[in-house]
Amino acid sequence: MTLSPRIVCCPDSFKGSVSAPEAAAALARGARQALPQAAVLELPFADGGEGTLDALLAVWGTRAETIETVDALARPALARCGRSPDGRTAVIEAAQANGLPQVSDLAPQPQRADTYGVGLIARHLLERPTPPAEILVCLGGSATTDGGTGILNALGARFLDDAGAPVTPGGAGLAAISRVDLTGLLPAAHQVRWRLAVDVENPLTGPQGAAAVFGPQKGADDADVAALDAGLWHLAEVLAAHTEDSGDALRSRVGFGAAGGIPVTLVTLLGAEVVPGARMVADAVGLREALAGTDIVLTGEGSLDSQSLDGKVVAAVKEQAPQGAAVVVIAGTVRLSPRECRDAGLTAALSLAPGPAELGELLQRAAQLFEDAAAHACALLAR
């Protein structure tokens, strides 16, 4: 290793304890403690879910904007969004408007909840004097299963029944949709580039679909799941008229089950692109360029397991790290064996817990534990 090694700290957030920027700062402190002569770069990262907005803003050096919107049950709410330094790219975390935490004070209403508030955020951005050229929508943590119809409603589209009347908002109205009226759609919605960050591969419908897999997390019982799945099935049939794909193709597309089926409507009606969240964030922050020439890469997430190696932060970092760089994962829990880590190309994986401790204690001390683990790892690698 060189006398002045280059170290990049690019962790995910640790839900319930530290944000990605806070984790990156703690790792950097530990690295500098062990190797004072090192050049250390903080590069907060995310997989496209909750926390992505803060990670991107930290890297870009821009501030979030707070706007008025509504939550998944149409109550007034505030949401944060952001833009890149040149203003060309805007970022929306869908869960800021349609997230489960915002409606946790009420009994679950899985068929009523909708994504209208997410669409209001997008409309706000598109109606600015200088609208963005691209909108990144980070999906995850949703309380909704409306196939993204609420977003299009907020942008001026109408989903109509056989009588020509707007259908009931939310998943409850999907089965009644007869046609989509796009005459009132905001023109800028067609002109902007949409990219949807997903961290699941579930299809729209069926046993592995949006309603069956994620509906129960949103309060859906068996009857709700059946109704929502049928509604999404029907929505795909209606949307097929707006694309060359068949309803079956839309229902089976990888990732279309994310966030209650949001991708199916935004892809067919707005030409959105569905991308793995970690890859989208990597492109947005210039991960490959940042890692060029790096000697040590410190990354991490709450739990290092088999899913970490498939489209998550750790996988993206390892994929773009230069050959020969040491890649160390610091995680709350390490569920991979040493052999599995080696096979995945990881140099080492360290748990935050220095010994027996309650979860609450570890969460309170997470930043210091990050710092200590990074110092140990860098000191060992420098030998």
Rank of each mutant, 00 (worst) to 15 (best):
M1D: 02
T2F: 08
I7E: 00
C10P: 04
P11G: 08
F14H: 05
F14Q: 03
S19G: 03
A24S: 14
A25Y: 02
A28I: 13
A28L: 13
Q33C: 11
P36R: 09
A38P: 07
A39I: 09
P44A: 00
E50Y: 02
D54S: 08
A58H: 03
V59G: 02
R63P: 00
A64I: 03
A64M: 08
T66P: 05
E68I: 00
G82H: 07
G87Q: 09
E93D: 06
E93N: 06
L106S: 12
R112C: 06
R112G: 00
T115E: 05
G140D: 11
S142P: 02
A143C: 05
G150E: 06
L152V: 07
N153Q: 14
N153F: 08
N153V: 14
G156H: 05
L160C: 07
L160S: 01
G164K: 12
V167S: 03
G170N: 09
A176V: 04
S178T: 12
L182M: 11
Q191L: 12
A197F: 11
A210D: 06
V213E: 15
P216S: 05
P216Y: 12
A226T: 13
A227T: 13
A230C: 13
W233C: 10
L235F: 08
E237T: 14
V238M: 05
H242P: 02
D245A: 15
A249S: 14
L250K: 09
R253V: 03
A258N: 03
T265L: 10
V267C: 15
G271N: 14
V281K: 04
V285C: 12
L287S: 04
E301R: 01
D310T: 14
V313Y: 09
V329A: 11
A331S: 11
E340K: 10
D343T: 04
A344K: 10
A349W: 04
L350H: 10
P354D: 07
E358S: 03
G360N: 11
F370A: 03
H376T: 13
A379G: 14
L380V: 15
